[in-house]
Amino acid sequence: MLTSDHPIVVRALHKHYGATPALDDLDLTVGAGEVHGFLGPNGAGKSTTIRILLGLIRATSGSVQVLGRDPWPDPVVTNRDIAYVPGDVSLWPNLTGGEIIDLLLSLRGGGGPGERARLIDAFELDPRRKARTYSKGNRQKVALVAALARPAPLYILDEPTSGLDPVMESVFRAEVRRIRNTGATVLLSSHMLSEVEQLCDRVTVIRAGRVVETGRLDDLLRNAPTVFRVIGVPAEAVIRVPGVTGVHSSGDGIEFAADSSAIPAVLHALHSFNPSSLTATPPALETLFLRHYETARS
């Protein structure tokens, strides 16, 4: 695979903490210019992967290429071209937000003062307050402004909107669209499915350190099951149709999910029972992903 087209290429990545594996044969490929959603239940290994990409921790085995290089031997080189928002933002309590933004920007080589001012304004951040006195959302904004105020080829954002209010979330989404239009690549770890749905071109879902789903978002959605709710029909009508799952009665009707390939057969089966009402809910990211999240618990 050409690494120049793929800012992030991860193959057979393993990370063990003692005997327990945090990452277990993980593959991840992020193409140039795409916004790539990185999803998975709590403890799935998203932050662990990201910290390996940044050269903060070392992979137990596997290959990692970030912007064409292995980040571990010399993270300084790759990090020059990465803007990062950590999953847990902690700041220097005795510095002001503005000072912290300037510090982080200057470490990366300085940012445009215009961009900085525009972002502080857009996120409605008071840069004169000591970090100690910031709310969770405001701490998050400091990290966001510092990451966004200097253009980078690659942005790695670990749950960047945790703690942001809905207005600020939309400001953030606008910023991601803006950086995407400049041709930059974004790896976005998130638990906010609506955010992923609106922003991401491709997604990778991981569970227990392994990939369980990856692909273009619209392909995934196209192939995802449609939820049917039908009144006046017994469950036996569809229960044996291949591609139908989760049949159960609800109120005076039944509910089930059907894969896109099974829809003609479903309609055919229902037809002979004369249903009095039928609703079909188009596939939502939520139905698609909740399966992965829920099986994680069993």
Partner: peptide, 21 residues
């Protein structure tokens, strides 16, 4: 009480951070 501080730190770097702390 905590007072507000500067909004800008024009010559920030790792040295100055270490010294200030």
């Amino acid at each position: 009480p905590d007072r507000t501080g500067r909004a800008l730190w024009s010559n920030a770097d790792a040295w100055r951070l270490a010294i200030r702390s």
